[in-house]
């Protein structure tokens, strides 16, 4: 980090300034002059928070995707199907047991197992063959999508959040000042829970990768797979573990998405596209990059949808194009 600052002093100052301005916008009450130019503060705050929480959801999907790619150089285009399957399974489990949290456990295990099966029966046979893997994973995603359409039909499912996460909570942030009254920001509690959970998960993943033995093996595998195998590590097992974990994360993300959006046929492609964009922006194979990319894309979508609705779809791809033009390996890529 220090090294990075020393090498790019100008950029560091620019980014720090931007962060400071953003923080000021979020914390300080807006004067009426500011509200005239920028609209109500509540709208801005909501858009920022929504961008970050949407980013959290994208991060859940994309981190598994990027891990799998980083280690196995395997572009798993069936990742979106794992997300959708997780959503449907989560709906079934939470309906059957009435427990939202329990469905996370079941879905993580079930989708992770599917990931193991996929890795063991399919991807292991075509290591290093990019084109074949791409085609096969597209094929798998089409087959899975049709099977899910057959089982669950075309209607939308909503996973019910537990009662303690229903409705909004008040955050200690000033949304508006009207005369002597101060209004605090009311924000959906389920989104806050998801945001906190994603941050915790992100930190845990970072710790696991950087502070544990298996994390060390994975990092070594990302850098040089052949050398790792040559030094006596059973690479196939590591592959399987990583694939299972990445798939499980996608499944869990399906529950999260089904809770604050909905589960419906076609979401698989939407989230595959989202995670591709996130990973391209953040840098293939980097967890930190996935987090950064996810938040950037989430913010672009949400701020865009409020301040420039016509172009909100374009912003995402503008960011991607800019990254590809100036830093093709991604923001955090190597």
């Amino acid at each position: 980090m220090n090294d990075l600052i020393r090498r790019n002093p100008v950029w560091t100052v620019v980014i720090a300034l931007a962060a400071a301005v953003l923080l000021y916008f979020i914390v300080a009450p807006w004067s009426s002059g500011m509200e005239e130019v920028l609209g109500r503060k509540q709208i801005f705050l909501n858009a920022v928070f929504n961008g970050v929480t949407l980013g959290a959801l994208y991060f859940l999907v994309a981190s598994g995707f990027t891990l799998i790619f980083g280690l196995m150089k395997n572009v798993n285009l069936a990742h979106g199907s794992l997300y959708l399957l997780g959503g449907y399974l989560g709906y079934e489990v939470s309906e059957a047991t009435g427990s939202w949290l329990f469905s996370f456990v079941v879905v993580f295990i079930a989708v992770a197992l599917l990931g193991v099966v996929l890795q063991y029966t399919v991807f292991r046979r075509m290591e290093g063959e990019d084109l074949r893997q791409t085609l096969v994973t597209i094929g798998i995603s089409i087959v899975l999508a049709d099977i899910m359409l057959w089982l669950w039909g075309g209607s939308s499912y909503q996973i019910l959040s537990p009662d303690w996460l229903r409705g909004p909570v008040e955050l200690p942030l000033v949304a508006a000042v009207r005369g002597d009254d101060i209004y605090f920001l009311r924000y959906p509690s389920v989104r806050i829970a998801i945001l906190v959970a994603s941050i915790v998960l992100g930190i845990l993943m970072w710790l696991a990768l950087n502070r544990t033995r298996i994390g060390m093996l994975i990092r070594a595998g990302v850098d040089d797979r052949d050398m790792l195998a040559a030094s006596g590590v059973r690479v196939q097992i590591i592959f399987m573990v990583v694939f299972a974990f990445g798939a499980g994360l996608a499944g869990v993300a399906g529950i999260v998405g089904g809770t604050f959006q909905s589960v419906v046929a076609g979401e698989d492609m939407r989230f595959l596209l989202a995670s591709l964009v996130v990973v391209i922006v953040g840098g293939m194979g980097s967890i930190l990059g996935a987090a950064l990319g996810a938040v950037l894309i989430g913010l672009a979508e949400q701020l865009g949808s409020v301040y420039a609705p016509t172009y909100s779809v374009v912003f995402t791809f503008l960011i991607m194009a800019a990254v590809l033009a100036f830093r093709p390996q991604g923001l955090m890529g190597r």
């Binding site: 709208i43 929504n50 929480t53 959006q261 949808s305």
Partner: peptide, 29 residues
Amino acid sequence: SGDFASIIAALPYDVDAIYLGVGGSDAIN
């Protein structure tokens, strides 16, 4: 587009009703 939370936040308070002209899963979301 799936996530409409920011537009919901931008809705004015002082109206009698909100007209909704969306359908399908967009409506559910």
